[in-house]
Every structure is written in structure tokens, then in C-alpha cells.
């Protein structure tokens, strides 16, 4: 019945009748704590004061790397060219030399380096430059298609890919170049 339902609503505070009446001087949670929580003052105090200690949390290198957080590099690379950066990204498997001759985004395999907006821009720039190169090659060899020239270029280029660099096999899978 409705009246029971209404009264149930009124009863709810008394059911958890560890609780205070609907309007309280202190908040409900505080009242509940005062009424119903056990007294473990010593260990609680000990625990909370420990939590205030100025000691860095001992996260392991593996934990940090799992978060994508890398330790500072041993050697600072302030004079790197764009091509050097591409090599570093290839070795870290963040990008790969695709079988189509273009750089591919393989960030899911990335380790030891972080992916950023700049990485994306670099990859775009390199790929655009390569595309322009193939078109130029085709302008020099009109009888050969861009695709053939691209494949020929890619075969030569593969020889110079940095050792350990990520590259695509014929079957589409990826491997690190062994030297």
C-alpha cells in the first residue's frame, strides 16, 4: 500500500537507524563514523602519518615503463637531424619501414621512446618527401610506373635502414633488421 511505501521511506533512516534523522547538524557520514566505526585510533593514526612521510613511492622501472614513462636518456641528443630521429623511432619500433616504401605508424610496438604530435608530423613530412621523390623519378623515367620505381627504390633503401630498425616483411608482419 501507498501508505506503507511512504512510511517505509520515513523508516529508511531508522532502518539504517545507525543514521541520524533526515536533517542533521553534522553530515550523515560523520555521524555514521561516530556511531558505528570501530576505534583503531593508534593504527589509524600510525597509518595516516606514514602516508604523510616525504618518501618517494618506490615505483620500479618496469612499472614506470608500463605507464609509458621513460627514464631520462643517458646521452642528450641536441644535434640530431630529422633523419636521425627517424632512425631512433625505427629502432624503438614506434614506426616501421613499410613494404610500400612509406613509414608506418607502429606505435603499439613502441618501446623506449614516446609518441608525440611531432612524431606524427615528422612521419608525414618524410612520407610526402618520398612520394615527391618517386614522382620525380617517374618524370625521369616516363616509361616506368611510379609503383615500379617505388618498389625499386624501396629495395635499395632497405639496405641502408638502420640496424635494429623495424621493417615489414612480405607477409605484412614486422621484424627488426638484423645486422
Amino acid at each position: 500500500m501507498k501508505r506503507l511505501a511512504l512510511l517505509w521511506l520515513a523508516l529508511v533512516p531508522t532502518l539504517a537507524c545507525l543514521s541520524a534523522p533526515p536533517i542533521v547538524v553534522v553530515d550523515r557520514a560523520t555521524v555514521l563514523e561516530e556511531e558505528a566505526s570501530g576505534s583503531f585510533d593508534d593504527i589509524e593514526r600510525q597509518l595516516l602519518r606514514a602516508g604523510l612521510a616525504a618518501r618517494p613511492v618506490p615505483l620500479t622501472p618496469a612499472q614506470l615503463e608500463a605507464l609509458g614513462l621513460l627514464p631520462p636518456p643517458l646521452v642528450d641528443h641536441t644535434g640530431r637531424t630529422a633523419a636521425d630521429q627517424v632512425d631512433s623511432l625505427l629502432v624503438a619500433h614506434c614506426i616501421g619501414e613499410g613494404s610500400d616504401g612509406l613509414l608506418a605508424d607502429t606505435r603499439s610496438s613502441c618501446h623506449g621512446l614516446a609518441w608525440s604530435e611531432e612524431t606524427e608530423r615528422l612521419v608525414d613530412q618524410v612520407n610526402q618527401a618520398r612520394a615527391l621523390l618517386w614522382r620525380w623519378m617517374q618524370s625521369q623515367r616516363p616509361g616506368i610506373s611510379v609503383d615500379e620505381l617505388r618498389r625499386a627504390w624501396q629495395r635499395v633503401h632497405a639496405r641502408g635502414v638502420v640496424c635494429g630498425g623495424w621493417r615489414q616483411r612480405e607477409d605484412g608482419s614486422w621484424e627488426a633488421k638484423q645486422c
Binding site: A29, E44, L47, G51
Partner: peptide
């Protein structure tokens, strides 16, 4: 969002978090 550590300091954080959640209903 950062990993846990198995020490009392970290447990204190967990306890505090549970309590804070309790207090904001």
C-alpha cells in the same frame, strides 16, 4: 592512476580514498 606500492604509506592513501568516497555519498 599511478601504480601501487606494497607499503603502509600506500595503504594510507587507499584508506583515505575509501573514506573520502564515503563522505561524498
Amino acid at each position: 592512476r599511478l601504480p601501487e606500492a606494497d607499503d603502509p604509506e600506500d595503504l594510507a592513501v587507499d584508506l583515505t580514498r575509501a573514506r573520502a568516497l564515503f563522505h561524498v555519498d
